[in-house]
Simulated scan of single mutants.
Amino acid sequence: MDALDAAAAGITRHGLEWASDLTGGRRGTFAAYLGVGAEPPTLPLLSALVDAGHRVLLPVCEPELELSWVYWTPESGFVRSRFAPIQEPVGERHSTAVTLDATAIFLPATAVDFSGNRIGQGGGYYDKFLATLAALSSASGSSAAGRASDAVPLPTVAVVYDTEVLPAGSIPAESFDRKVDAALTPGGIIRLR
């Protein structure tokens, strides 16, 4: 097994365990993404989530740094995004509001630190999505009790390689940044903050 296959296997095993812990073994809905290029591979995790009975939402990049969401299955097709260097699912698009009913969010990142700060690809799509989700949650009164004010209203896990989890305070946070709860690596789930 090569390093990429081993990483995919670890991410799938630990990501599926995290999902099961959150749902108590019941079915849930997870907003996720398709890892491409040098990103940690997530396709096996996406398939495993669906095989376990969960629903999976994948993003589509829209104008003005907006994300829409498509319910994905292993039979879904992908097309090259018009706005970002990613593959996007083909299907009916839903607004960010659809993610309010999700169980949790698997986020892309190039690194996270133990303070819960994350670095993305720099495009700004996820920063805007997380801010919009927090605002929608506040407006609907559905914010989870006990969550920090800079947190997203749903549990979040950034998918990174083991070496991309950095000491607390390593990543500077901007006012628009939202902290993540955990890192999902090939080696396991790492609780942050």
Score class of each variant (00 low, 15 high):
M1D: 12
A3D: 15
A3I: 14
G10Q: 14
I11R: 02
R26N: 12
F30D: 00
A32K: 13
G35A: 06
V36W: 01
G37C: 00
L43Y: 05
A52W: 14
H54N: 02
V56G: 04
C61W: 06
P63W: 03
E66T: 14
S68F: 00
W69E: 12
W69K: 04
W72Y: 03
W72Q: 09
R80S: 05
S81W: 03
S81D: 11
R82L: 07
R82C: 09
A84P: 03
V90R: 10
E92Q: 09
A102G: 06
A104T: 08
F106N: 05
P108I: 07
T110L: 05
A111Q: 05
R118Y: 14
I119V: 13
Y126P: 10
D127E: 15
F129G: 09
A131W: 12
A131N: 13
S137M: 11
S138E: 10
A139P: 07
G146F: 11
G146M: 04
G146C: 02
R147T: 13
A151N: 10
L154N: 04
L154A: 06
V159S: 02
V160W: 05
Y161W: 07
P167Y: 00
I171A: 03
A173F: 04
A173M: 07
E174L: 05
D177H: 13
V180M: 08
L184F: 02
G188P: 00
